[in-house]
Amino acid sequence: MSGIALSRLAQERKAWRKDHPFGFVAVPTKNPDGTMNLMNWECAIPGKKGTPWEGGLFKLRMLFKDDYPSSPPKCKFEPPLFHPNVYPSGTVCLSILEEDKDWRPAITIKQILLGIQELLNEPNIQDPAQAEAYTIYCQNRVEYEKRVRAQAKKFAPS
């Protein structure tokens, strides 16, 4: 494992614990031996107030490669969400998460999670990743928002 990646992720964890947006979660997972795995984080993004996503808490896994922060983490909703920019596998399609697009090593975990929260309610229809959600979003916004509200209710924190 890269010392650069681990040191950056340790800084990220410290900064997150000191200050993070209300309702968001970002925690490194534990290895079988109980030690912390900084390369694999369990996160959760709350649906934004005043949107059909409100009330939901959407679980996301963030996986970092050894060359982080040169390369972005892979962000994957578990379980996958109904959304035009979420692949059926759950992987998020967002330009700041793509090395050859808008990724920059200075982007923080907090910025990534806030960017994904923004994307939930403002899909990028130029870059669809899920045919069904994309089609319904474009053709029947009322039905799309109904499905999103049902999903938010399903993923409401207990």
Rank of each mutant, 00 (worst) to 15 (best):
L81G: 04
K30T: 07
H20K: 04
V86F: 13
V86Y: 05
E132S: 11
S2M: 04
S95W: 07
A26I: 07
E54P: 00
Y134Q: 05
P32Y: 13
H20Y: 03
P72Q: 09
Y137T: 09
N40G: 04
D33F: 01
P28K: 06
L9M: 04
E42G: 11
G115V: 00
L113C: 11
L114T: 12
L114M: 13
E98P: 11
P157E: 06
I45A: 01
F58C: 05
A129S: 05
G34C: 08
I109C: 07
P80K: 10
H20E: 01
D127H: 03
E99W: 08
E143I: 12
P128M: 03
G115P: 04
S158G: 06
E118H: 12
C138Q: 11
E122A: 12
V92G: 01
A5D: 05
G55N: 09
G56L: 02
F58H: 02
K65I: 14
I45L: 06
P80N: 13
F58L: 03
L114K: 12
K18G: 07
T91V: 15
K154Q: 11
N85S: 03
A131N: 14
C138S: 13
R17W: 04
V25I: 15
K76R: 14
K101E: 11
W41C: 00
A131L: 09
A156G: 08
I96G: 06
A26C: 08
K74V: 15
P69A: 04
F64E: 06
N37A: 15
L9A: 07
P32M: 14
Q111V: 13
T135Q: 12
D102A: 13
P80L: 08
A156D: 15
T35G: 07
S95H: 00
K48E: 08
F24P: 00
E98N: 15
P88D: 15
A131D: 08
S158L: 11
N85D: 01
L113N: 05
E99M: 11
P79C: 13
M39E: 14
G50A: 11
E143L: 10
I136M: 11
L63H: 12
L63D: 14
I107F: 10
G47N: 02
D67G: 14
M36V: 08
F64I: 07
L57M: 13
V25A: 08
A150L: 13
E42K: 12
P21T: 02
W103A: 01
F24D: 12
K153N: 14
Q130G: 00
